[in-house]
Design a protein around this nucleic acid. Structure first.
Length: 972
RNA sequence: GCGGGUGUGGUGAAAUUGGUAGACACGCUGGAUUUAGGAUCCAGUGCCGCGAGGCGUGUGGGUUCGAGUCCCUCCACCCGCACCA
């Protein structure tokens, strides 16, 4: 064959007609492509995909006669780059499992959609002026093509897109319902706000226990309420009834589950928007890695903190990995302790409230530390310290979160306020400091510092020469800190002689008794900021009368067109650019200009799939009652902590309000590992056009450069292709190895365009077919593990499918099946079923390979014998399975054929071969009838001539026969 | 620092309850066939050794007739959280 044709075939095998055009001898074609006996994957895949589409093979409806099974993929954000081979891994696994469940007779719901609001489309819009909806549309089309060619069994009639107004209408509805709800902490349940209003009218806050900020009345704008400065939050019915409508709406705002508040937010100047805590990593934005600073802004906020305890407790019933559950617990961050009030010297009207997990150490308080932003800093600071404190505060405020956290190196910084607190038990004066190590966002933003028992307090005391009251028996805390809880306390009044473990409950009771503290449980989980200053997100169904937000419930608010996707000159969000006539709805003084965050639409999409076309409700109750929870959720483990937290929160809310009948969204979850790319490198001799082979690179000063993996085969560079790859390499010269080849270096890294190691599924489907790619991705290794992509291995899997096809092509009418062949088939049925049940997809492929190899060896030709194999192959290779089903005389589609069961009769062999070991070392094999009892096996083994040889001159101390497994003889 | 996880051939890996470690593939070596091969078929392939045999699942120890698997010690790497009171 001419060289030109070979390379042509390698890079993209084309259709028959194109090959004809290159004048190939016809006998060559027969062996390669033409014969009926060959596995023509292109024809097969195209044919069955067309059939499935025509018969709506994957459309499902509620069917009470069948048990349901809901298999869900984490829906993708349709990015411009398209899919690489790593993306479909989870989709293939869930598809395999969905098909398996369908064969088992379940009514399987397996939907797909797009998380189509988001930053990249908006960034692109800012650069090009193109509306994000257009970019999104193009990307969705591309994704769909790529997904379709892999033969997934999605019911596309249920597709959702978060940016579709028909979808986000219901995201807006859920927001509206959250706005119209409060959390009854007494009943541990979300309830309609009207119920709270009734309680306020009759009893004020005496009976109602709404979850809210501890100082909720301090958030109210000045002067709207009918009480004076001494008001301490005890709202009576008289108070409430005396309020006018404006005051009442301000008060209710403090209790709503979606509420508007001024709060410190993570502001990212580069992105021009606020971010949720889980969108910030190490003080940088997760997307883009831009610096994040604290800023006070009026924002919509979700009261997720009200659900903290339930979000922890309900993890117990979920079949998720420990690490994901642990990440959830970690994020919620529950800690038990006490809240303690310290007086302030000379200011009897103020107290400093602190949270501590170690109330037992209260006699060891050496000083107090407040966060620099703490509201009492101002009143505590003395005239002499004023300048120092102000300077410190300013410096702290100007630092980014990243600098503030010291990016890991915890430098000791602080400043004395000049003020003193009063110890609630001893009445002693305690100096009050401010420091970065006390965080405004956790607890009360203030701590009682016990240097003897806390590492940071101790270091701080040492750095600023503060007193370290000794409170542990026999420990010199001047020398080192003692953080264990196993030693007796001293100098601690009533707790003397007790260990901290014993003293903690006593201390809480004692503080409560003295009226200076209470037992308290604290959570790290903050309420979630729900406003984004972006264009490409859900608009709020909100307008403003003055400062009072009002819901729009009778009409959907859709995204208005804008002239640019940037903030206004006044710094308002992009929606402020929309002119009145651009909005489909305008009310009041102005519309809400913020949009919802990315997680809004993705927090409930799994519910919309259940009833995707409903225009009356987000999801009809009878639909959600039938389909229920997601039985199996498959997706990556990266970036899921927030998604899971928010989805669980919304699910619990919808459950509390009675719209769905379950309070956790995802029963079981599997996290697929990442597929890593294998990059190749060339070595340029510095300052030249010479490239040296991997073996000789050490002899030169070289520069390592990524090279496109498509022009490298088995680490050997196609040097001609390299020259034409990029213009700057046109004159490249090569220093080859001793075999006259150029070897590339390699490394396993994340797949990325810039590393030229991206393998797209498209190329592989073109060359080997979808079934091969599906099987290969499953064969690569355990689903949950990270693994490097290696294209070379794919030929083995492709060969397997060809052999599988060959077995079925050799079916002869009238040929009989042997016992051995039955054993092969049933052994395979058992292994494949067991492995699918435990999601061991890689060994499913191995088992099928073994079965096919053995059947080929034994020349199996009986159709009835082979038919179950077509069903076994159906989850992993659905196109080929249809073809095989047909070849073996099956009618209809293979999709709904019952999963075969392994017959015990064929799983037990007549004979058993025992490995016989001496002191644990296997020396020979002995085959005996399978039903021979252990005693007889032992005697047969001992008289065996080989055994005699090994026993020569030694004593048999013990013989262990493990029936069906092994014989071990202990000799001495 | 805390939490979770992983260490097995040249490579991806298998061994589900403690029972022949390396299945199944890739790669490699040799052979057959072929005008040709990146096609197909056959054989071999953990390491050392001609062989008998010895050694071998990150390290060191323990339990056991028997340990990749159970217990303890240490090491390395990956992921998550991290000044959380």
């Amino acid at each position: 064959m001419p060289r030109q044709l070979r390379s042509h075939r390698f890079y993209n095998r084309r259709s028959l007609s194109q090959v004809h055009a290159l004048k190939i001898p016809s006998d060559y074609l027969c062996s390669e492509l033409g014969s009926r006996m060959e596995y023509d994957f292109r024809a097969i895949e195209q044919r069955w995909q067309t059939n499935w589409k025509a018969s709506e093979a994957y459309k499902v409806t509620e069917d009470p006669s069948k048990e349901k099974f809901y298999v869900l993929d984490m829906f993708p954000y349709p990015s411009g780059a398209g899919l690489h081979v790593g993306h479909p891994l989870g989709y293939i696994a869930s598809d395999v499992y969905a098909r398996y469940k369908r064969h088992q007779g379940f009514n399987v719901l397996h939907p797909m959609g797009y998380d189509s609001f988001g930053l990249p489309a908006e960034q692109y819009a800012i650069q090009t002026g193109q509306h994000p909806a257009l970019t999104t549309e193009a990307n969705v089309t591309r994704y769909r093509e790529q997904l379709d060619q892999l033969g997934f069994c999605y019911d596309w009639s249920r597709q959702v897109r978060t940016s579709d107004p028909a979808y986000y209408r219901w995201t807006q509805w859920i927001f509206a319902e959250l706005f119209e709800s409060w959390y009854d902490a007494a009943a541990d349940c979300a309830k309609p706000i009207s119920a709270l209003v009734e309680m306020l009218q009759s009893d004020g806050l005496e009976t109602a226990q709404p979850s809210c900020d501890g100082d909720w009345w301090k958030m109210l704008p000045d002067g709207v309420y009918p009480w004076d400065d001494a008001f301490d939050g005890t709202l009576t019915a008289a108070h409430w009834n005396a309020c006018d409508a404006v005051a009442q709406s301000h008060i209710l705002m403090q209790f709503r589950l979606a509420y508007l508040a001024d709060s410190e937010v993570n502001w990212c100047p580069a992105l021009g928007t606020v971010l949720a805590n889980d969108e910030v990593k190490d003080g940088l934005s997760e997307r883009g890695g831009h610096p994040v600073v604290r800023k006070r802004m009026r924002q919509w906020i979700m009261r997720i903190s009200a659900f903290s305890q339930r979000l922890i407790d309900d993890l117990n019933g979920l079949d998720w990995t420990d690490s994901i559950k642990e990440a959830q617990r970690n994020w919620i961050g529950r800690s038990e302790g006490a809240s303690v009030h310290f007086g302030i010297e000379g200011l009897p009207q103020h107290t400093i409230e602190v949270f501590t997990t170690r109330p037992d150490t209260i006699y060891g308080v050496g000083f107090m530390v407040l966060a620099p932003e703490h509201e009492l800093v101002e009143v505590l600071t003395t005239a002499e310290q004023k300048d120092a404190i102000t300077a410190y505060q300013t410096a702290a405020a100007q630092k980014s979160e990243r600098e503030r956290q010291g990016a890991g190196d915890h430098e000791i910084r602080g400043c004395f306020t000049g003020g003193y607190a009063v110890h609630p038990l001893t009445g002693e004066k305690i100096p009050v400091w401010i420091a970065d190590y006390v965080l405004a966002g956790y607890g009360t933003g203030a701590i009682m510092a016990v240097p003897a028992g806390d590492e940071r307090d101790w270091k701080f005391a040492k750095a600023y020469d503060l007193s370290i009251p000794p409170i542990f028996e026999g420990v010199d805390t001047d020398e080192s800190v003692y953080t264990e809880k196993d030693i007796a306390l001293c100098n601690s009044g009533e707790f003397d002689g007790k260990t901290p473990v014993e003293a903690i409950p006593l201390a809480i009771a004692y503080l409560e008794d003295k009226g200076v503290g209470t037992g308290q449980i604290n959570y790290r989980l903050r309420d979630a900021v729900f406003s984004r200053q972006r264009y490409w997100g859900e608009p709020f169904p909100i307008y403003y009368d003055g400062e009072i937000p009002q819901l729009i419930r009778d009409e959907q608010v859709t995204l208005p067109p804008v002239d640019a996707y940037l903030p206004t000159e006044d710094g308002d969000p992009p929606l402020a650019r929309a002119k009145t006539e651009d909005w489909n709805v305008t009310r009041g003084d102005r519309m809400e200009y913020n949009t919802m965050p990315g997680w809004a639409g993705s927090s409930w999409y799994f519910l919309r799939y259940l009833d995707p076309h409903n225009t009356e409700e987000f999801c009809a109750r009878d639909k959600s009652d039938y389909w229920g929870q997601v039985d199996l959720y498959v997706g990556g483990a990266e970036h899921t902590t927030g998604h899971l937290l928010y989805s669980r929160f919304w699910t619990k809310f919808l459950f509390d309000r009675g719209w769905i009948g379950f309070n956790e969204p995802f029963k079981q979850m599997i996290n697929q590992g990442m597929i890593l790319g294998r990059s190749n490198f060339v070595y340029r001799v510095q300052g030249t056009d010479q490239f040296v082979t991997f073996e000789k690179r050490k002899e030169f000063q070289t520069q390592r450069l990524h090279v496109d993996i498509n022009i490298v085969q088995s680490d050997k560079l196609d040097v001609e292709a390299f020259k034409s790859w990029r213009p700057e390499y046109a004159n490249a010269e090569f220093i080859l190895n001793d075999e006259g080849e150029y070897t590339c270096g390699h490394e396993v890294e994340k797949m990325s365009k810039s590393k030229f190691n991206v393998q797209t599924p498209d190329d592989l489907v073109e060359r080997y077919g979808a079934d091969t790619l599906r099987c290969y991705e499953m064969f690569l290794g355990p689903l949950t593990q990270h693994k490097p992509w290696d294209t070379q291995g794919i030929s083995g899997v492709h060969n397997f499918l060809r052999k599988l096809h060959r077995v079925f092509s050799q079916i002869e009418a009238g040929s009989a099946a042997t016992d051995d062949q039955h054993r092969i088939v049933h052994k395979t049925i058992k292994k494949v079923s067991d492995d699918l049940d435990r999601y061991a997809f890689n060994t499913v492929i191995s088992a099928l390979m073994i079965g096919v190899n053995e059947l080929l060896e034994t020349k199996a030709q009986n159709a009835a014998l082979l038919q179950p194999l077509a069903v076994l192959a159906s989850p992993v290779a659905p196109h080929l399975a249809e073809e095989l089903w047909e070849l073996s005389g099956g009618t209809d589609s293979v999709l709904d054929q019952a999963w075969p069961t392994a017959d015990e009769r064929w799983l037990t062999a007549d004979e058993v071969t025992y490995p016989v070991s001496f002191n644990g070392k296997v020396r020979f094999q002995l085959t005996v009838p399978a039903d021979l009892d252990a005693q007889s096996v032992e005697s047969q083994v001992l008289v065996h001539e080989q055994a005699q040889a090994h026993l020569d001159g030694k004593t048999v101390r013990k013989v262990i026969v493990v029936p069906g497994r092994i014989v071990n003889i202990v000799v001495g």
